[in-house]
């Protein structure tokens, strides 16, 4: 996953962009400055932080702490303060979603395969398979405290639902420490800004339409432009990964309680929040509501865009 850990600098009209790859996504840091050295330094710092978080919490990297926790299921694994805080946050999300959001639900992906546009190759697992996988899911069975975490044998956790958004927020914190110039941190579409651009101008952020590249023809294929002066936005959902059964479309987000994908949810939801991790969770929690996703967010008085 760690192909080419380098950063590239691009010059824009009144800013620099630092481009790198992390977490299987194209990443970009934009800083509104004419100071090239500042831009390079900022890029180094943010990229290093994002890679650090990737190395620590990626479930694909067998050297990561996440892998250590998973491969030592059944025994206690020592954790640090940062990990404790992330687990505590995940715990809050579990409680708030009444168990729908569960960072131990990743094992369900072993029985569900989502492929973009593969309408014909729809293959659903049997309920027996689902029940067997579900027996290895359950955040409340996991014991953790400030010093350690203990999983039951066969269980796994992953930080996929919060790691990238957390990295965005960390990037913003570090950017603010380095410079008061306006900065945008974009990790594969989940992004945040330190504040408005110079002269209180907004950042114009294009959100890629999920159906671009999709084999499904659709009439609203244009990118969406969002104006942002502060805070963050995160998108949950992926139109390329879904299943259709009996005419019902199932997105790739899984219900940790039933072990099934969520039906009738929007293809994607983009949420605006003060922090990226909050935006990401709200978008995911909304998708977990299925057909009630939009009303869930409306009732929360949250700014969002949903695509169905």
């Amino acid at each position: 996953m760690k192909n080419s850990r380098t950063i590239n600098l691009a010059v824009n009209k009144d800013s620099y962009s630092i481009i790198f790859n992390a977490m299987a996504s194209p990443c970009e840091v934009i800083v509104q400055t004419t100071d090239k050295q500042l831009a390079l330094k900022l890029g180094d710092i943010v990229a290093a932080e994002v890679w650090r978080i990737e190395d620590k919490y990626s479930r694909y990297d067998h050297k990561s702490l996440c892998s250590a926790i998973n491969s030592n299921a059944g025994q206690s694994v020592a954790i640090d303060e940062e990990t404790y805080q992330l687990l505590t946050f995940a715990d809050h999300c579990y409680q708030l979603s009444d168990g729908l959001f569960d960072i131990s639900s990743g094992v369900l992906r072993k029985i569900w395969t989502f492929r973009g546009g593969s309408v014909q190759r729809t293959k659903f697992p049997s309920q027996t398979q689902v029940s067997a996988a579900l027996s290895k899911v359950g955040w409340k069975k996991i014991n953790f405290d400030r010093q350690q975490i203990t999983l039951y044998k066969g269980m796994e956790i992953d930080f996929g639902g919060i790691g990238k958004e957390y990295a965005v927020d960390r990037g913003i914190i570090l950017a603010k420490q380095l410079t008061s110039n306006p900065v945008l941190v974009n990790l594969g579409g989940d992004l945040a800004v330190t504040g408005p651009r110079i002269n209180n101008k907004t950042w114009q952020v294009a959100i890629e339409h999920p159906d671009v590249d999709s084999t499904l023809g659709t009439d609203n294929s244009a990118d969406m432009i969002v104006s942002l002066k502060s805070g963050a936005l995160a998108t949950s959902g992926d139109a390329r990964r879904f299943l259709i059964k009996d005419g019902i479309r199932y997105g790739h987000i899984l219900n940790a309680k039933t072990g099934w994908p969520i039906a009738l949810a929007p293809r994607s939801i983009t949420v605006v929040s003060p922090q990226c991790i909050q935006a990401g969770i709200l978008a995911t929690l909304a998708l977990l509501q299925g057909c009630n996703a939009e009303s869930f967010l409306t009732e929360q008085e949250i700014k969002f865009w949903a695509r169905r």
Binding site: I173, I277, Q278
Partner: peptide
């Protein structure tokens, strides 16, 4: 549901310091 947003704000603040 309003509480979810408020609770998330607090949880986020704790996480990010």
């Amino acid at each position: 549901k309003i509480n979810i947003k408020a609770a998330l704000t607090i949880a986020t603040a704790a996480l990010l310091g």
